[in-house]
C-alpha cells in the first residue's frame, strides 16, 4: 500500500474514533462551563461560545468555538510560529469524558500549513488533537493537549519538450507534533488566563526547543 494512502487511512480511522458517538461524554455533573475550561478541556455546551488568544515564543494563536447539540463543537483556529509557519484550520471537537473534575476531548482539524523563508513549504494539512483538563480548585485547571499534524506537500513538475509541455504532480508527506502542558485560571465568570509550555516535534528538525505562551480566554452565551 502506498505510504500516503496508508497514512490517510490511519488518519481517517483516528478521526472516526475521535468523533464516534459511542465515545461521547456521559450525562451528569461535569466541569464548570467556563470559557477557560472549554478552551483547554475542549468542547462547549449547546449555545455557548468560547474564544482564546495566546502569545508567546514561538507560537501565537487565535481560537473560536461554538457549542452545538449532542456535544459537537465546531471551531476555527489560526496558529503561527514566529509569523513564519502559519496554520489556519477549521475543526470539530467532541467531548469524550465529561466528569465533575475531568474533561477529555478529541478534535479533528482540516486546514493548511504555510511556511515562509528558506525552508518554505505549503500544503493541505489535517490534524488530530486530544485535550485533557482537570479541575483542582475553584479557579485552577491544569491541562494538556497533544496534536499530530499531517501535511501533504504537492509539487508540480512542468516538463517542456520539443513537442509540448507535460505536467505531473508528486506528493510527499510531512509530519509535525505539538504537546502542550499548562494551567488555566479563572479571572471572572467570562474571562480566564493561562500559561502553557509547548513541546514541538517537527519533520526534518533533529532538535526542537520548547516554547512558552500566555493566553486569554473569554466567552459565554449569546
Amino acid at each position: 500500500m502506498h505510504r500516503c494512502t496508508g497514512r490517510l487511512l490511519v488518519f481517517l480511522a483516528g478521526a472516526g474514533f475521535v468523533l464516534h458517538p459511542t465515545v461521547r461524554a456521559a450525562e451528569g455533573a461535569s466541569l464548570p462551563e467556563h470559557p477557560a475550561f472549554d478552551m483547554h478541556g475542549g468542547g462547549s455546551k449547546p449555545g455557548s461560545w468560547a474564544g482564546g488568544m495566546q502569545a508567546g515564543f514561538p507560537w501565537q494563536a487565535v481560537h473560536l468555538q461554538y457549542g452545538l447539540e449532542d456535544g459537537w463543537t465546531p471551531f476555527v483556529e489560526v496558529s503561527s510560529a514566529l509569523l513564519q509557519r502559519n496554520e489556519p484550520s477549521i475543526g470539530l471537537a467532541l467531548r469524550w469524558v465529561d466528569r465533575p473534575r475531568v474533561r477529555v476531548t478529541g478534535e479533528v482539524l482540516l486546514g493548511w500549513q504555510v511556511q515562509t523563508g528558506v525552508l518554505a513549504h505549503s500544503g493541505p494539512s489535517m490534524a488530530l488533537r486530544v485535550r485533557a483538563a482537570a479541575w483542582v480548585g475553584r479557579r485552577i485547571m491544569p491541562y494538556t493537549a497533544w496534536t499530530t499534524r499531517h501535511t501533504l506537500l504537492i509539487d508540480r513538475t512542468a516538463l517542456e519538450t520539443a513537442s509540448g509541455t507535460e505536467t505531473s504532480l508528486t506528493a510527499g508527506p510531512r509530519w509535525d507534533a505539538l504537546g502542550v502542558v499548562g494551567v488555566a485560571f479563572v479571572l471572572s465568570p467570562r474571562v480566564g488566563l493561562e500559561l502553557g509550555v509547548e513541546y514541538p516535534r517537527t519533520d526534518g528538525s533533529t532538535v526542537t526547543l520548547p516554547g512558552v505562551h500566555l493566553g486569554l480566554q473569554f466567552g459565554g452565551r449569546p
Binding site: A81, G117, S205, L209, G211
Partner: peptide, 14 residues
C-alpha cells in the same frame, strides 16, 4: 537551506 535545516526549531524559521 542546508544551514537552516540544522538549526533547532523554531530557530530554523528565522
Amino acid at each position: 537551506a542546508f544551514l537552516a535545516s540544522r538549526f533547532p526549531f523554531p530557530l530554523n524559521l528565522i
